[in-house]
């Protein structure tokens, strides 16, 4: 084991520029992936914020008895998709309108009879706040006898869904493209390292070193470079995040687990790339 670390260290010392180059390319690739990740993280937070406000409003027919509304509320609460149901009486609706729509306070104040209907405001559980589930629940709500109207911004929710889908798709695509690019770059640097050490490898073979033994330092080298690249990428992302915060808008950074995941991803990427490259190029030595 000590020997392997010595070999890895030697390879860094023997080819400092090559080693630095591969770390930088991995760092850059993961930095770009990370940037996208940051956008995705912040977009997701923003979406969650918006989704938080997604609700279905079920207007009740005028004259619906309070007992019927309360019973319906209990019924709707038991839907698996539903998080909470709030019963807003006609009086409460008027009160709310008065306080929220300050400009029309006088208008509301002058009213003799309350023009606003009572309603049930339904909030769905986090996993069910997409267009399909919202429409499904709304459909079910129209089945109540005393339902006057159900409103839920169908278009708007559908757009939100699409935005999230597009975000995910671009993320996957960009991530995959850069992962592939770094695999190729790491593979190339490992290939150069293998070629550079061809005479050593040939001698190792000659004196009876096993293939596993010959491969190990390259794999370790790839993994270490990947990990260093991942760390550098996290640092770069943090710098970018700080710069955006200072100049543009307040954004969130990765959680420790997400940052760890980037480093882990870099490590695995380095390992995978060197494994592929070593397997292919050791045969040619």
């Amino acid at each position: 084991m000590r020997l392997i670390f010595r070999e890895v260290f030697l390879s860094f010392r023997r080819t400092p520029s090559l080693s630095a180059l591969s770390i930088i390319t991995i760092a850059f690739a993961l930095f770009v992936v990370g940037l996208f990740g940051l956008v995705a993280v912040n977009l997701r937070l923003a979406l969650a914020d918006i989704e938080e406000r997604v609700e279905i409003v079920m207007y009740l027919r005028r004259g619906t008895p309070r007992a019927a509304a309360v019973a319906a509320r209990a019924d709707i609460r038991s839907f698996p998709e539903v998080e909470s149901v709030e019963y807003v009486t006609a009086d409460a609706a008027l009160e709310r309108a008065r306080s929220e729509l300050v400009e029309f306070r006088d208008v509301f104040g002058d009213l003799v009879t309350n023009p606003l209907p009572a309603s049930l405001e339904i909030r769905l559980k986090p996993g069910f706040r997409d267009g399909q589930n919202v429409a499904l629940v709304a459909q079910r709500l129209t089945g109540f006898r005393f339902t006057d109207d159900v409103r839920f911004g169908r278009e708007w929710i559908a757009k939100l869904d699409r935005l999230r889908d597009i975000t995910a798709a671009i993320g996957l695509f960009v991530g995959a493209a850069f992962a592939l690019a770094s695999v190729i770059i790491i593979g190339t640097t490992i290939r150069m390292a293998v070629i550079q050490r061809a005479s050593e490898i040939a001698i190792m073979r000659l004196v009876g070193a096993t293939d596993g033994f010959i491969r190990r330092p390259f794999l370790l080298e790839g993994a270490i470079k990947g990990a260093l690249g991942g760390l550098a990428a996290v640092a770069l992302n943090f710098a970018a995040h700080q710069a955006v915060n200072r100049t543009l808008i307040e954004t969130s950074f990765f959680s420790d687990a997400q940052a760890g995941l980037i480093v882990l991803f870099g490590t695995l990427l380095g390992l995978l790339a060197s494994a592929l490259s070593v397997r292919k190029h050791l045969r040619q030595v």
Binding site: A202, L206, G208, A209
Partner: peptide, 21 residues
């Protein structure tokens, strides 16, 4: 390849071009 390694540990091989590091 594993057996080849074992075999080669029991052989000594030298060449015209020395093959030293």
């Amino acid at each position: 390849s594993r057996e080849t390694s074992k075999l080669r540990r029991r052989l000594g091989i030298v060449f015209q071009d020395f093959r030293l590091l």
